[in-house]
Structure formats: C-alpha cells, structure tokens
Write a protein that binds this DNA or RNA. Sequence first.
DNA 1: AGTTTATATTAAACATGTTTAACTAATAAA
DNA 2: TTTATTAGTTAAACATGTTTAATATAAACT
Lengths: 202, 202
Amino acid sequence: MNRREASKNETRQLILRAARRLFAQKGMEESTIRDIAREAGVSPASVVVHFKSKTALLEEALNRDIETALSELAASMPEDLELLDRLMHLAKGFFRLYDQNRKLYRALIRHTIFEPAGETPHITKVSELYLRFLSGLVEEGQARGIIKPEVDTTIAAGSIFSLYLGALIMLFRRPDMTVEQVAETLAAMTDQYLKGIAIIEP
Amino acid sequence: MNRREASKNETRQLILRAARRLFAQKGMEESTIRDIAREAGVSPASVVVHFKSKTALLEEALNRDIETALSELAASMPEDLELLDRLMHLAKGFFRLYDQNRKLYRALIRHTIFEPAGETPHITKVSELYLRFLSGLVEEGQARGIIKPEVDTTIAAGSIFSLYLGALIMLFRRPDMTVEQVAETLAAMTDQYLKGIAIIEP
DNA sequence: AGTTTATATTAAACATGTTTAACTAATAAA
DNA sequence: TTTATTAGTTAAACATGTTTAATATAAACT
C-alpha cells in the first residue's frame, strides 16, 4: 500500500471513530459534520470527501455492530427449538441491538430502508443475508416436514421479514414499549402466519 | 370568524395550494420553502409559522388525497369477493395512489412512519383507520365462519398491515417494479398468511 | 375615541449539509 | 534529479431549513 493510500485510510478511520463516538453519544441530528470533523482532527470537507454524505457516514459507522450482531445471532441460533422460537431468536437479537440507541438506529433505518439497493450497500447486504437466512430456515422446515412443501420460500422469507419490519416500526414509534412487548407482538403475528388464520375445508 | 383569523386562513390556503403544486411538480427536496413562499406570495418565515416544518407541510399537503383515496376505497369495497381479494382491493388502491408520484409519497412515508403518533397526526389517523378497517374485515370473516374464531383480530390487522408495509417498501425501493407486480407479491404473502405455511397435525 | 394588547407577518440572522476551487504533497514521468 | 501529474486535503462559498427579533395591524379594553 502507498504512503498516500495509507494516510488516506488513516484519516478515514479517524473520521469513522469520531463519528461512532459522537453519533452514539449525541445522536445523528445533534452530531454535525463540523463536530465530527473537529473530533477527528480533519476538515468538514474531508468528511464529505471520504463518505459522500452524512447518511452514508452513519451507515458506515453502524455497519460493524450490525454485521457483528447478525453473525453472532446466526452462530448462536438454537438448533433444537421450533421454528417460531428460532425466528424470534433472530428478531429479538436485532431488537436488543436497536434498543441500545433507538433514536440512532431509527435514523439509520429511516434513511436506508426506502433507498434503491445501490445507495445503501451495507444495509442492503444485511437485509439480503437476513432474507436468505429466513428462506433457509423455511426450507429446512420443509425438509423436516413441518412446513408445507408447496410454499414458495422466497415469498415466505418476505412475509416473515415484513412482519419483523412491522414490529420494528412499532419499536421505533412507541418509546413506551419494551423490547419484550414488541417481541411478544411479533411472536403473535408470526404464529398466526405459521398456522394461518383461515379455516381450511379439507 | 375574525377578520384576522380569516386572513390567516387565507394565507394558510395560499401556502397549501402553492405547496401542493410545487411538491407535485418538482418533488419534496427540489421544492424549497423559499420557492413555495414565492409561489404563494408570502415570506418564507410565514410558511414555517403556519406549518411548523417542511415535513409537516408535506403531510398537510398530501393528506387530502390520501383521505379521499381511503374513503373511496372503503366505499367501493366489493362485498361479494373473498377476503384476500378485498384486502388486495385496499392495498392496490393505495399502491396506485402512491404510484402517481412515488418519490413524493416515499418522502412522506419516510418522514412519518417512524415518528411517534403525536408528531404526524394525519398519517397516524389514516393508519389507524386502515387498521380498524382491517380488523373489521377479519371480524366479519369470523362472523361468516371463514376465519378461526380464536384469532386475535387486532394482531391479525397488525399482521396484514405489516405485510402491506413490506410490499410498500418494495414499491418505493424498486422503481423497476410495477404496481401489479408488487401487488402480486403482496397477494402471495397474504395468501400464505391466511392459509398458514405450517403443517398442522389434526 | 384613544390606548393597550395580542397576533399575523416578515426581514434578517443562524446552523448546517454540501459544493467548489485552491493548495499541498506524493507519485510517475522525463 | 527535475518536472509533471495525480490525488488527498481544506478554506471559503453556497443552499436551504429554521429561529429570532422587529413591525404592523386587528382586536380588546378604558
């Protein structure tokens, strides 16, 4: 690596670390680019040059913790429990992460969830991993004979993810609700989804 | 009504009309408060005094069309179709509305969906109406004997609404997808939800 | 009617994300 | 080694949402 490239990476890391500190401490809106630049010892312009925009910087800053959480959750996934509990293991893990700083993660989700994939590479990647993980769980359920074989697993993953998103929105909208309460609601919704709410005539 | 109050309302309407025109024409980010003020023939400060913030102005500006759409959809709800089709009637109606200007409605949803209820009164009200309508449909299904009587209808409404939101996010994230395609995906998800994906041992 | 108070309006200032153009230093070319 | 080019950095400018303080005028009061 070049001497130039090295120092570039170094300032990039300085900015990232400063951003993580300030974002965690004061939230997104309250941490100005000027603040972050000062904390990192660089110019405000440098922040923008390195990370296109404040939103993109937020995404980069939080990405590490999100990826860590996902891989830890995947690794700690209990094998023996039934599907609903395994789904809740995943969802609750993310709820707990976001609960560490709801305002900050709300800002992240707000700025990324509606963007086309290319604009938010990290969140897009995590979402895709999550979706693939979900469809994997459903496929496994089919292999075990507990999920209907005719079910489209991609659609199923989308359904489960949608229910999760609905609960996530509840978590962000309702500061009075605890992670446990939101998780219970999600469990009830997912349970309905697994069992179906319609009466099927055999 | 006072002469003062009357003129206040008048400028309020001037601003609202200007905002509707400009937002529809150029989108939210591209319409500055200064633009809107100029178009309305008032000062930029006046815009903020009348509508707290640009976001709140957007919510006010779009609220009329959203409420109209909701009441028309409720009125035109087909009585004879089965539940899935009736749910899709509602969802598709909103998808079509949002499809008239995806970027603009995306901005609206982004700025309102995560806010506590008090901050976004109109969207909150519409969401609550929608949710109540959904739980009403489910209750009706129970009365007709096509929905399991033990189903919690509030949870069911939340589930159906979450699936709808998931599809809505897809509509906003994927400019390449048509309303019809998104609606088909939602129909598939909702169908899974109604029938259940798990195999139930009798 | 004259005076006071409340309020709608606005000009000017402010804060902050972002852009632009200039500067500096490292690398490549001669 | 000297020169030219590329690329990282930044100061200054800009655009825009919002706040503040001043102004004007309608309503309330005496």
